[in-house]
Nucleic acid binder design. Structure first.
Lengths: 141, 141
DNA sequence: AGTCAACAATTGATGAGTCAACTATTAGAA
DNA sequence: TTCTAATAGTTGACTCATCAATTGTTGACT
């Protein structure tokens, strides 16, 4: 594939990404990354920031900043690990759980753009293709 | 599709997007958006910033800022339209053409990560799926 | 002609990510 | 034990987007 072809494909991904993220945030009133972060907490329970970071595949610094916002808004509580004071444990609050439940319900009632654009099969196909492009978490350098 | 499902798919797109863009910029030494901008100029010749903006699907402000960088680096020349002083015409320089040609050649020699991850058919499939997610340029609101 | 609306580009403030430098804490040699 | 490495998180400086407000120019109506 020529460099031009590559750049077109990547640019297409970029545009889709930006548009979809904007829609998601408008619909839920929540940043996609922070939503995903809360889902990690929801599914794994209390965890350290490093764990969150490797799940979300973003920089440590970004995690710190998202958590500051979530903490200020009362969606998350943080406390240092007594057995290893370097680490910070993060946990969801009740408020967060309620809010997420509400979001899920609201979504069922609305017809979300993404649903209308792709069939279930296409969604799965897309997900498979994307998986191939994400480098394995602990790849050989 | 549940909100959770949607968020997972979008997040997957986000991660792929970030990783691929980083690779592209490392490989070419050029920002993906600015590369794509130059390709627009290359293919359409001299055009106004508004034209560039609608091709790239980014904010006017972003176009202005990219052009400032490209102009400072000598890749692009700008001049106001004599017949309509509001408009600015943009054109590539020889330096830019040479650089792009070099990039293309360098790319052919290297084995670019994207090539290895997907087959030609998969690339096409991915592109088709993404197209369905991009809203038509002048869609009905 | 004079005013007002639309248009093109620019500028400022903000959000989300990166990397690099720093702090604090723990663990592992010497 | 004490010095040194590695680890966990934070902060600062930067890039690339966005939106909103501003400037300058043109066109159209009265």
């Amino acid at each position: 594939m020529s460099l031009r072809g590559v750049s077109q494909l990547l640019y297409q991904i970029k545009v889709v990404n930006q548009e979809m993220i904007a829609k998601f945030e408008k619909e839920t009133g929540f940043s996609l990354t922070r939503y995903e972060l809360m889902m990690v907490l929801n599914e794994k329970g209390k965890c350290s920031q490093t764990t969150i970071q490797s799940e979300l595949m973003i920089d440590r610094a970004a995690v710190t900043r998202h958590l500051k916002i979530l903490e200020d808004d009362g969606y998350v509580v943080r406390e240092r690990n007594k057995d290893n004071n370097r680490e910070v444990f993060v946990e969801m609050t009740e408020k967060a759980k309620e809010y997420l439940a509400k979001c899920g319900k609201d979504h069922e009632k609305s017809q979300y753009p993404l649903n209308s654009a792709l069939t279930e099969m296409e969604e799965e196909q897309l997900s498979d293709l994307l998986s191939k492009l994400i480098k394995p978490k602990e790849g050989i350098e």
